[in-house]
Amino acid sequence: MTKLHSQFRAALLDPEAPTPTGLRDGQGRPAAKRFDVYRNNVTVALIEALRTAFPVLHKLLGTQNFDQLARLFVRAHPPETPLMMHYGGAMPAFLEGFAPLSHIAYLPDVSRLELALRRSYHAADAPAFDPARLGVVTTDVLMASTLTLAPAVELVRSPWPLVEIWRYNTAKGADKPRSVPQSALITRTEFDPVPHALDAAQVAWITQIRAGATLAAAQDAASAHDPDFDLTPLLSLLIQTNAIADLTTPKE
C-alpha cells in the first residue's frame, strides 16, 4: 500500500509521471487512461478551490492565466489538511517568487487580503459588547484600559491602494484605485467580512491594540505617525461593525 500511495501521489499532480502499476479495467487489461480520471479530478478540484478562495486574483488575471498559475501552485503546494476553506495560505509567497507576474507587484497583497477575508468569514462569533461601556468610564480610566477585538477582525498591511483595488474588482461602479498606500482592516458586522482602508496612524493604533497595549499607548503610537491623529472615525467604525469584543479597565 505504501508503494501504491506513493505512486498515486507522484502521478496525480504530474501528467509526465508514470501511472501506478497494477491498474486494470474490468477485463484485466491495463487501464492507464482510467487513471487520468483521478488526475483530472484532483487538479480540477484544487483549481476550483483556488478560484473560490481568490475571486479577485482570478478576475485580475483572467481565467486562462489564473488556471495556469493555479496548476503550478497546486503541484508545488497541495493542501496540508482537509480544511479546504483555508487552502492557499502559500499563495502570497508563491506569487512573490513568480517571475511571469512580477510586473503586477500588488498581486501578493491581493492574495493576502483574500486569505484574510476567508479567515474572517469562518472566525468565531464575537460575544455581544455594549459600546455604552466605553462612555461610562472616565477618560483617564479609558486611556489606561485595553480592548479585545472580535476574532473576525484582520489587518493586512500594504503599500498599495489595496482596499480600492479590491472594491474596484468586486463592486459595480466603484472608482478606479488612486495611487495611495492603504492597509486593510477587515471587520464582520454579522456574517460578511468587509475591508476598510486605514492610514499609517490608524494601522499603528490597531497594531498596538491587538498587541494588548492600553489606549494611551496606542494613541502615542498613532500620534508618532500623525500629530493630529483623531481616533473618532476609527473607533466609530469598530463600534458600528461589532469589532470590539471586550473592554478591560485597569484593576483598582
Binding site: M1, L4, H5, S6, F8, R9, L12, G22, Y38, N41, V42, A45, L46, A49, P78, P79, E80, T81, P82, M84
Partner: peptide, 22 residues
C-alpha cells in the same frame, strides 16, 4: 477511499485494493 498521503490532502476519493492487509 483514501485522500491523505503523508502531510498532503489530495482532495479526491482515491481507490484501494481489497486485500487482507487493507
Amino acid at each position: 477511499a483514501w485522500s491523505t498521503h503523508g502531510a498532503e490532502f489530495l482532495d479526491d476519493l482515491l481507490p484501494l485494493p481489497y486485500t487482507e492487509a487493507t
